Amino acid sequence: MKLIDRYIDELLESTPETPLWNQEMIRQGKKPHWNYIDGCMMTAFLTLYKKKGDIKFLNFVKEYIDYFIAEDGSILTYEREAWNLDNINEGRALFALYDHSGNEKYRKALDVLYDQLINQPRTAGGNFWHKAIYPDQIWLDGLYMAQPFYLEYEKRFNGKRNYRDILSQYKNVYETLRDRETGLYFHACDTSRKMFWCDRKTGLSRHFWLRAIGWFYMSLVDVLELLDKEDYEFQKEISEMFKELTDSLLKYQDESGMWFQIADLGSRKPNYLETSGSSIIAFALLKAVRLNILPRSYYSHGERAFKGICREYLYEKEGKMNLGGTCLVAGLGGKERRDGSFEYYMSEPVVENEAKGIAPFILAYLNL
């Protein structure tokens, strides 16, 4: 565990201009911008602050976020009309910063992001489009990126008026993207049935991509943590979804403790044990046990997953800690013509020290 603490300290050397964990930005030579990848790390550092009480973690988040937030609440590089659900995720840090400082710029920035959600284009069934460039599409990723923020804003500032909308979006995903045979969820659905990657009858993509399932799974437990006892119906339905998916995922847990990049095709070469999805599932499992959403008997599955990740992919090299085995990125459509085939998911780069693996790995560690 000391090695993990050392790894965390090394990550604190990051700045918005040189984020050590944002391999996408580094590889593409992008300038600093508001993004969900940094948002995942801010969540991890704020959880470290809450768990350990060390002010350095809170100060780090404040300095990092303040690079982007102006006094009027405007957000550097943020574009509302991109209708990009990914851009909501980093906003979750604003709640904590507002609580700790009382600075109104954070509340104004929260309002900016909430305004996007209220005006976000929707599918005919009522779910948010994933992005403007992906019209009529529901991606599992988007549930994590937007719904916990949406619910927390509603709880704090809007009298829970849109709780029914949030629950309805989850129920639509359950009915539309869940595979009844495996209990797993497909990566995405094009409700217009137009995209080249989708099934013409169902609109569904072809495979169960681990990290997408993980994003959805983690969103469920984060939402459950925010709900109050009086939100009984909401809590009951989300809890049932979470428990059902838990048992489905455990059927595909490898003997190593991890899960494969394509969750149900572990034996098919060159499928591989993947760090980010496995870390997300480990974290959500362990957190659910801590919150008494799952019985204590499930703890061993999360612990085994975490230990498997450490054994397979955590190592020291040239005096620095490294976490490998993370799929850099995977999506559908776009200018790359990503077709959602097995071969496509295997073709994406597998990298080290990427936030999408690091952040949930830290969160799992904090819930052991």
Rank of each mutant, 00 (worst) to 15 (best):
M1D: 14
Y7R: 02
I8N: 01
S14I: 02
W21K: 00
I26F: 10
K31T: 13
M41Y: 05
K50Y: 10
I55P: 11
I55L: 14
D66R: 04
I69R: 00
D72G: 07
T77R: 09
R80V: 14
E81T: 15
W83P: 01
L94R: 01
Y98D: 05
H100I: 13
G102M: 01
E104L: 10
K108G: 06
L113W: 04
D115S: 12
I118R: 15
N119G: 09
F128G: 03
K131A: 02
I133A: 09
P135W: 04
L140W: 01
L143A: 07
A146G: 06
A146L: 01
Y150K: 03
Y150E: 03
R156K: 07
N158E: 11
G159I: 02
G159F: 04
K160N: 12
Y163M: 06
D165Q: 12
D165F: 08
I166W: 02
S168A: 15
Q169N: 07
N172H: 15
D179F: 02
R180S: 15
R193L: 13
R193N: 12
R193K: 15
R193M: 12
R193P: 06
R200I: 12
K201P: 08
T202E: 04
A212G: 08
S219C: 08
E225C: 11
E230D: 14
K236F: 13
T246F: 01
K251Y: 12
Q253A: 01
W259Q: 02
F260D: 00
I262D: 00
P270H: 07
N271A: 07
E274I: 02
S279Y: 05
S279P: 02
L286P: 03
N292T: 13
I293G: 05
L294D: 04
L294F: 07
S297M: 13
S300V: 15
L314W: 08
L314N: 07
E316Y: 12
K320Y: 14
M321W: 14
G325R: 00
C327G: 06
A330L: 09
L332S: 04
R338I: 09
Y345L: 04
E348H: 11
V351H: 00
E354S: 09
K356R: 11
K356A: 06
I362M: 03
L363R: 06
N367R: 11
L368R: 14
